[in-house]
Simulated scan of single mutants.
Amino acid sequence: MHGDLDRIDQKILSELEGNGRLSIVDLAARVNLTNTPCSERVKRLERSGYISGYRATLNMDKLGLGHLTIVQVSLAATAGDNSLDAFNRVVKDIPEIECCLMVAGSFDYLLTVRTRDISHFREVLGDKINKLPGIHQTNSFAVMETVL
């Protein structure tokens, strides 16, 4: 962790990472502070950017999007022709793409793609992902189980 954070700040971050809906009362009890100092620390951590937001973790199976596929993307070229910028702009327009990571290695991007089933994934791959600018090759991996 960053050097500006003491043990209590680190504990606050850890507790909120596990459950962002903790009340200040519950959080203060978990980190052994009273409510006001705990609240002030949380506000300081938010202002300083250590806490960038709060969100709900959705049950994708219940939402009908239980099929997860990892897609490796290789672009035809990545130097000098703005292909990375072009890809970065338009990949955001595909709602089924849950995460897009530019990586160093033998391919350029790693995507996590959420769909209803393998048939829906095939549509997204063929009709959307493979039509993104600069695509040279994709490799897809169906996720069998999320461990962590």
Rank of each mutant, 00 (worst) to 15 (best):
R21I: 00
R21G: 03
R21A: 00
L22M: 03
L22T: 02
L22W: 00
S23T: 10
I24V: 06
D26M: 01
D26W: 02
D26A: 05
L27A: 04
L27T: 02
A29S: 11
A29T: 02
A29Y: 00
R30D: 03
R30I: 06
V31L: 10
V31F: 03
N32F: 06
L33A: 04
T34E: 13
T34Y: 02
N35K: 12
N35Q: 13
N35R: 15
N35I: 08
N35D: 14
C38Q: 06
C38P: 05
S39F: 04
S39D: 12
S39L: 14
E40L: 08
E40V: 09
E40S: 06
R41D: 08
K43F: 10
K43H: 14
R44C: 03
R44H: 10
L45P: 02
E46Q: 15
R47F: 09
S48R: 12
G49D: 15
G49N: 15
I51G: 06
I51M: 10
G53Q: 13
G53M: 12
R55Q: 09
R55Y: 10
R55T: 09
R55E: 12
R55M: 14
A56L: 08
A56R: 07
A56G: 08
L58G: 05
N59A: 06
N59G: 05
N59W: 05
N59P: 03
M60R: 08
M60D: 05
M60C: 02
D61I: 08
D61F: 03
L63T: 06
L63H: 02
L63V: 01
L63Y: 05
G64R: 10
L65Q: 12
L65W: 03
